[in-house]
Amino acid sequence: MSEAILKVEGTHTFIGQHHILQGISFDAKADAVTVLIGRNGAGKSTALKTVIGLLPSSEGRIMFKGNEIQKKKPYEIARMGIGFVPEDMGIFANLTVEENMRVAMLVEDEATAQRLERTLDIFSDLGKFWKAQAGILSGGQKQMLAIARAIVNDTSLLLIDEPSKGLAPILVDALIEAINQIKEYSVVVLVEQNFYMASSVGDYFYILDDGMVVHGGLMEDLVNDEELKSKYLGISKAAE
């Protein structure tokens, strides 16, 4: 079994007085896509924000490539090689697509130029809107830009929060294809409510419920476990 690049151990996170994450533990293995699934309010987005440092954990340990990162600032964590795509995509609407990408580039060297070329191969639409304001892009294009920004650096772990939210099915398929390409060179932790997408890209899964991990394992096992899907995800065989 491959080594875990990210290990989250017994992590607790509060937002204000609300105890959102109540000691969650999960890991992200190298060369794989790990999907966090669960109902609304289960703590999935909070888990990603805690890993990137935007929300402080009050207890527990987060290890990235063997280093503790739970006390580090978000920019320090990002510079270690973690990319983050938030649920709202975090696009800078008043900046052009090019400027959005430039802000994302931590170093502008030959290697970055090559990664940019590779990124534009995956998301070819971005090249067409290179000089356009990001605010005018469609939902799907904004999502592509958000992911492109996160992989233009030497990113070894990519955290993506609900990329399929609000997208038409055809765009979800395009996104699945893109993530399957990205997983060739970056470990992905994906938060996803769309089970079709989650099962299409995921190798491993963790189900979150009320701020706790209640199940985890291989995605192919979850796909075949009707009881688990029905109990925690509200998916029945008929609905599929």
């Binding site: 440092g53 978000p74 920019y75 990002a78 802000v103």
Partner: peptide
Amino acid sequence: ENRDMVQAMGH
């Protein structure tokens, strides 16, 4: 526009 995102990008 979004300072959290700027931080999460390594700045």
